[in-house]
Amino acid sequence: MSGAAVDEAGSRPRKPRGRRADGERSRQKILDAAAEIGAERGYDGTSIAEISRRCGLPASSIYWHFKDKDDLMATVIEDSFEAWNRSWDIDADGNILLELVAIAEQLIGALQEHPQFLHIGLPLALQKRTDDPRPRRMYLQMRKNLTARFEKIGETHFAHVPAERRTAIITYLIAGAEGLIISHELDRSESAPGIEELLQIHASSVIQTIMQEAEK
């Protein structure tokens, strides 16, 4: 009989668990290597050949898991953002004003754990390109999703603040953090402040603004 063997119930046998686990480990090794290289060299400086060398897997294995470099790098950005996005939360029923400092620390800590979407996606988003690669579109979409999440938080906890003002604060929060990360990447000298310190100063400014709005 030609084709794959079937069991008595007429269904094809499942792949052994070990094989699936090996496949997941290989996929993660590829993603980790792509994230490292992308953070070091940017999107254009990242190649399948270098990813293959870094992760120790053949290019054929990379193409088995991912359609092409665009698919791989877009997955790196999406996975990194989603991991960061899951790492912090705000209680809808709590007093957010009492938790702002803890929330800021949570946001910054999560960003340090999952920075790839910013290190790779942000520089790419700033470029004016005719090819408009999928990782660039992915970063911009993740950014919109983040804005929408902050807007929902603003509606829940600061309904008395005009929507236009809430939008301005959210824009300042996101764009300010992005700007500090760009500044940090441009100045890697020993005298330059660390990115965590810069983000903490930015967070303090945002918290002060929120507190002022809450008092009105």
Rank of each mutant, 00 (worst) to 15 (best):
K67L: 14
A39G: 12
R136K: 15
I103A: 10
I108N: 00
N85R: 14
A148K: 11
H119I: 05
G42R: 03
H119P: 04
F81L: 10
T46Y: 00
G38D: 05
Q116F: 07
D44W: 11
G94A: 15
G38V: 01
A102T: 13
R149E: 09
A92P: 03
R136D: 03
I153H: 09
R54T: 07
C55H: 01
F81K: 03
D71G: 06
A59L: 09
N85M: 14
C55F: 03
S80Q: 10
K152R: 15
S47T: 12
L146V: 05
E82K: 13
P123L: 01
F158S: 01
L98H: 15
Y139M: 03
A49S: 11
D89Q: 14
L122D: 04
P133R: 10
L57D: 05
D131C: 11
L72C: 07
I77C: 09
C55E: 03
L97W: 09
D79S: 15
P133Q: 08
L146P: 02
G109N: 03
L72T: 03
A92N: 09
Y43D: 01
L107P: 04
D93K: 06
A39I: 05
L122H: 05
C55M: 04
F158K: 02
R41N: 10
E105W: 01
I90Y: 08
Q141W: 13
R86C: 12
L98T: 15
T75N: 04
Y139C: 03
R149N: 09
D91P: 06
N145L: 15
L98Y: 13
F81A: 04
A74P: 01
K152N: 14
Y43S: 01
T46Q: 02
D132N: 12
I51T: 03
T46V: 02
H157Q: 07
L146F: 12
D89H: 14
I103H: 07
L107D: 02
H157R: 08
L97E: 15
E99D: 15
D71R: 08
I77H: 05
R41K: 12
